[in-house]
Amino acid sequence: MRKGARWRSPFRAVIVCSALALGFWSYSKFGNVFDYAGSPVPHRLAPRLDLITDRGQQFSLGQLRGHAVLVYFGYTNCPDVCPTTLADLASALRGLGGLRSKVDVVFVTLDPAHDTPPVLRHYLTAFDPHFIGLTAPPAAIAEAAKSWNISWKRAPGHADYIDHTSVVALVGPHGYLRTRYGVAQISDRDGVSKDIRHVLDVS
C-alpha cells in the first residue's frame, strides 16, 4: 500500500462531513434569520378574503388593517384539529392583556353548506365571542382556500368530515404574511403570544 493511501479515505470522510456540517451551520447562522416561533412564510401581502361574516356582513381583510390577524380554515363538524386549534388560539390571546383588542382571529369555513352564519356564530362563541367566522358560496371558499395554500377534500367514507391543511397564518397590521403555525406549533401559547407582540411592535 502506498504511503498515505491508508489515510486517504478517512481524510475524505472528514472533508465531506465537515462540508455538510459547515453548510448546515452556515445556513442556520446566515441564511435564515427568523425571529418567530412559527415557521417562515414568503414576505408578501396576505391573499384576499372577500367573504361574508357570521353576522351576514361583507368582509375583507383590509378592514382589519392596524390589527394582527390570525387566519384559520376549518369547519364546525371537525372532530379534532379545528376545536383544538381554536381553543389554543383563545388561550394564546388571553395572555395578551391590553393588546388583545388589537388582535383578530378569522375562521373560514371549508363546509359552507353546513356552516351557515348562525352555525358559525354559535360555534365560535364557545371559544371566544370576538372570533370572526367567514363563509361564502362554495366556489368562493374554494378560491380563497387555494389562494391561502389550503388543501382539502372530503374524507373517504365520512361524508361529514373534511381532510384539510391545518395551518394558522399570522398577518401583520399592514396586511403582510408574517409566519404560520402547524398543528404542533399552535399549542405553544407563549410562542404565539410573543409573535403577536412582535408583529404589533415592529410593524
Binding site: A13, S28, F34
Partner: peptide
C-alpha cells in the same frame, strides 16, 4: 469511497431524522 459513504449516510440520517435536537434554523436548512 466506503468511508465517505458511511459518514455521509450516518450524518445525513441523524441530521434529517432528528431536527428537533438542533435549533429551528438548522431544521429549516435541512
Amino acid at each position: 469511497d466506503p468511508w465517505v459513504a458511511f459518514s455521509a449516510f450516518v450524518l445525513f440520517t441523524i441530521a434529517v431524522s432528528l431536527p428537533g435536537i438542533f435549533n429551528a434554523a438548522l431544521a429549516h436548512a435541512v
